[in-house]
Computed example of a mutant assay.
Amino acid sequence: MNIKRYKKEGLLIVIILLISGALLLANRIIFSKPANQVEISVNGEVVRTLDLNQDADILIEGYGDGTNRFVIQDGKVHVSEATCPDKLCMHQGWVQRTGENLVCLPNRVMARIIGE
């Protein structure tokens, strides 16, 4: 009895691993498009679209009196300064792949990497 149970559990583990691998591969294929722009929106409205191939240092005024400073360098972007209380947006690091986002909820600012 126990051998049948272990075979079923082993088969279930293998199936889960195969499905996980297939989903990971599909995700890589979908988001493998070359990223060439960052779209910055405030409160859901796009305010700037910038080229990732040109280094820049941009100050964006967010909701209320909040501001976020975005730095574009070497095809990557990150938040270098923010007036929000928790500064979580600054700790998100650099993003560079299509579909990645930088979000500052208190200032209602979002930067989204877009491809062609």
Rank of each mutant, 00 (worst) to 15 (best):
M1W: 10
N2A: 11
I3C: 09
I3H: 08
K4Y: 12
K4W: 10
K4V: 04
K4T: 08
K4G: 07
R5M: 11
E9K: 15
E9Q: 15
L12V: 13
L12Y: 01
L12I: 13
L12T: 05
I13S: 10
I13N: 07
I13R: 02
I13T: 11
V14E: 02
V14K: 07
V14G: 00
I15W: 01
I15F: 09
I16L: 13
I16W: 02
L18D: 00
I19R: 01
I19N: 07
G21T: 11
G21K: 02
A22H: 03
L23A: 12
L23Q: 10
L23Y: 14
L24N: 13
L24R: 00
L24W: 14
L24Q: 08
L25E: 13
L25D: 11
L25P: 00
L25C: 08
N27T: 11
N27C: 03
R28E: 14
R28Q: 10
R28D: 13
K33P: 00
K33N: 11
P34K: 12
A35M: 08
A35N: 01
A35H: 00
N36F: 09
E39A: 01
S41V: 03
S41G: 04
G44N: 05
G44K: 07
V47M: 12
R48M: 05
L50D: 00
L50W: 06
D51K: 15
D51S: 13
N53Y: 01
N53A: 11
Q54T: 14
Q54V: 15
Q54M: 08
A56H: 06
A56K: 14
A56Y: 09
A56R: 15
I58G: 07
I58E: 15
L59A: 08
L59M: 06
I60E: 03
E61K: 12
E61D: 15
G62M: 02
G64C: 05
G64Q: 08
D65R: 08
R69H: 09
R69A: 06
R69E: 10
F70D: 04
V71G: 06
V71A: 06
I72E: 01
Q73G: 01
Q73N: 14
D74L: 05
D74K: 01
D74T: 06
D74S: 13
D74G: 05
K76G: 02
H78Y: 05
S80F: 04
S80M: 06
E81A: 00
A82R: 09
A82P: 12
P85Q: 04
D86F: 07
L88P: 00
L88G: 01
L88S: 02
L88C: 04
C89A: 08
C89V: 10
C89H: 10
C89K: 07
C89Q: 03
M90T: 15
M90H: 07
Q96Y: 15
R97N: 09
T98D: 14
T98E: 14
T98K: 13
G99S: 11
G99N: 04
G99V: 01
E100G: 10
N101T: 13
N101R: 15
N101Q: 09
N101S: 02
V103I: 12
V103H: 04
V103K: 06
C104V: 04
L105I: 13
L105K: 10
P106C: 04
P106Y: 05
N107H: 07
N107S: 12
V109T: 15
V109N: 07
A111S: 03
R112T: 10
I114M: 09
G115V: 03
E116M: 06
E116D: 07
